[in-house]
Deep mutational scan, measured.
Amino acid sequence: SQQIATAKDKYEWLVSRIVKNHNENWLSVSRKMQASPEYQDYVYLEGTQKAKKLFLQHIHRLK
Protein backbone atom coordinates (compact mmCIF):
# COMPACT_ATOMS: atom_id res chain seq x y z
CA SER A 1 0.00 0.00 0.00
CA GLN A 2 0.96 3.64 -0.40
CA GLN A 3 1.00 4.09 3.37
CA ILE A 4 3.59 1.34 3.79
CA ALA A 5 5.72 2.69 0.93
CA THR A 6 5.71 6.16 2.50
CA ALA A 7 6.55 4.78 5.94
CA LYS A 8 9.40 2.74 4.44
CA ASP A 9 10.86 5.79 2.66
CA LYS A 10 10.75 7.83 5.87
CA TYR A 11 12.27 4.99 7.88
CA GLU A 12 15.08 4.51 5.33
CA TRP A 13 15.77 8.25 5.51
CA LEU A 14 15.98 8.00 9.31
CA VAL A 15 18.36 5.03 9.15
CA SER A 16 20.61 6.78 6.64
CA ARG A 17 20.71 9.86 8.87
CA ILE A 18 21.57 7.93 12.04
CA VAL A 19 23.74 5.08 10.77
CA LYS A 20 27.00 6.33 9.27
CA ASN A 21 29.21 3.37 10.13
CA HIS A 22 28.89 -0.29 9.14
CA ASN A 23 30.00 -1.34 12.64
CA GLU A 24 26.79 -0.04 14.22
CA ASN A 25 24.60 -2.72 15.79
CA TRP A 26 20.84 -3.11 15.65
CA LEU A 27 20.22 -2.99 19.41
CA SER A 28 21.88 0.36 20.01
CA VAL A 29 20.54 1.93 16.82
CA SER A 30 16.97 0.73 17.37
CA ARG A 31 17.10 2.21 20.87
CA LYS A 32 18.19 5.56 19.42
CA MET A 33 15.34 5.43 16.89
CA GLN A 34 12.55 4.36 19.26
CA ALA A 35 11.40 7.92 19.92
CA SER A 36 11.21 8.75 16.19
CA PRO A 37 7.78 8.67 14.54
CA GLU A 38 9.42 7.36 11.33
CA TYR A 39 10.62 4.29 13.24
CA GLN A 40 7.37 3.84 15.18
CA ASP A 41 5.20 4.06 12.05
CA TYR A 42 7.27 1.57 10.09
CA VAL A 43 7.47 -0.94 12.96
CA TYR A 44 3.72 -0.57 13.54
CA LEU A 45 2.96 -1.29 9.87
CA GLU A 46 5.65 -3.83 9.01
CA GLY A 47 7.12 -5.14 12.25
CA THR A 48 10.51 -5.11 13.90
CA GLN A 49 11.99 -7.87 11.74
CA LYS A 50 11.46 -5.89 8.54
CA ALA A 51 12.87 -2.78 10.20
CA LYS A 52 15.94 -4.78 11.20
CA LYS A 53 16.27 -6.20 7.69
CA LEU A 54 16.33 -2.71 6.16
CA PHE A 55 18.87 -1.64 8.78
CA LEU A 56 21.09 -4.61 7.86
CA GLN A 57 20.78 -3.78 4.15
CA HIS A 58 21.89 -0.22 4.90
CA ILE A 59 24.87 -1.50 6.94
CA HIS A 60 25.82 -3.78 4.05
CA ARG A 61 25.81 -0.83 1.62
CA LEU A 62 28.17 1.09 3.91
CA LYS A 63 30.84 -1.64 3.79
Rank of each mutant, 00 (worst) to 15 (best):
Y44M: 15
S36W: 13
S16N: 10
N25V: 04
I4M: 09
E12R: 10
Q2P: 07
R31V: 08
E38P: 01
K8N: 02
D41I: 05
N21T: 08
I18S: 08
I4F: 06
K8C: 05
I18Q: 06
E46Y: 10
S16L: 05
K53I: 11
W13T: 15
K10M: 06
L54F: 07
T48Q: 12
E38Q: 10
L27G: 14
L14D: 04
L27D: 13
V19G: 00
G47N: 00
L14S: 01
V15L: 15
V43A: 06
N21I: 05
V43S: 01
L62F: 03
L56G: 02
T48I: 13
R17L: 05
Q40D: 02
A5S: 12
D9N: 11
Q34T: 08
H58G: 02
P37L: 06
V19W: 03
Y44T: 15
I18V: 13
K63N: 12
V29I: 11
A5E: 06
M33K: 02
N25L: 06
S1G: 07
T48W: 06
Q57E: 15
A7K: 03
Q49K: 14
K32I: 09
K10C: 05
I4C: 05
E46N: 10
N21K: 10
V15I: 14
Y11L: 06
Y42C: 00
K63E: 08
Q57F: 02
L54S: 04
N23M: 11
L45G: 03
A7R: 03
K10E: 06
R17T: 12
V15K: 00
D9L: 13
N23Q: 12
L27S: 14
R31G: 10
N21C: 07
D41N: 12
K10T: 05
R17G: 05
Q57W: 04
L56V: 08
W13K: 15
Y39V: 01
K32N: 08
L54V: 14
D41M: 09
L45E: 07
L27W: 11
F55S: 00
L14Y: 06
H22T: 14
G47D: 04
A5Y: 06
R31A: 12
R17K: 13
H60S: 15
L45H: 07
Q2Y: 08
H58V: 07
S28C: 08
Q2E: 13
K8Y: 03
A5V: 11
H58Q: 07
D9G: 12
F55D: 04
K10V: 03
Y42F: 12
E12Q: 10
E46P: 01
N25T: 14
L27P: 13
A51Y: 00
E46H: 11
D9W: 13
Y39D: 00
K63H: 03
R61V: 05
K50L: 03
L45K: 07
S30Y: 08
R17M: 11
Q2D: 08
Q2W: 10
Y44G: 14
K63Q: 11
K63A: 05
V29D: 01
K20A: 08
S1R: 08
Q49Y: 08
K53V: 12
L27I: 12
K50A: 15
E12D: 04
L14M: 06
I4D: 07
Y11H: 03
L14A: 05
R17I: 07
H58F: 11
K32F: 05
D9H: 13
S30D: 02
R31F: 05
A7C: 06
A51H: 00
D9S: 14
L14W: 04
S28Q: 14
E46L: 05
I4R: 07
H60G: 15
T48G: 08
E12G: 06
K50N: 10
Y42R: 03
H22Y: 10
I4A: 07
V19T: 06
H60E: 15
I59K: 09
Y39E: 00
Y39G: 02
K20Q: 12
P37D: 07
Q34E: 15
Q49R: 11
K8A: 07
K32T: 09
S1E: 05
K52H: 08
Y42T: 01
Q3L: 10
K52F: 07
R61T: 10
K20N: 07
A7V: 11
A35P: 07
V15T: 02
W26E: 04
S28W: 06
G47P: 05
D41G: 08
D9M: 15
N25R: 07
G47S: 04
R17H: 09
E46T: 03
Y44R: 15
K10D: 07
Q34L: 09
V19L: 03
S16G: 10
Q2F: 08
G47Q: 02
A35F: 10
L54D: 06
H22V: 11
S36K: 12
K63V: 05
K20R: 11
A5P: 08
K10F: 02
L62N: 02
S36Y: 15
Y39W: 05
H58N: 03
D41R: 13
L45D: 02
K32Y: 04
K52S: 01
Y44K: 15
Y11I: 00
I4N: 08
K53F: 10
R61I: 01
S28H: 13
D41E: 15
Q34V: 09
A35Q: 13
S36C: 15
K50F: 01
G47M: 01
R61P: 02
V19A: 07
A5W: 08
K52E: 13
P37A: 09
P37M: 07
V19M: 03
N21R: 06
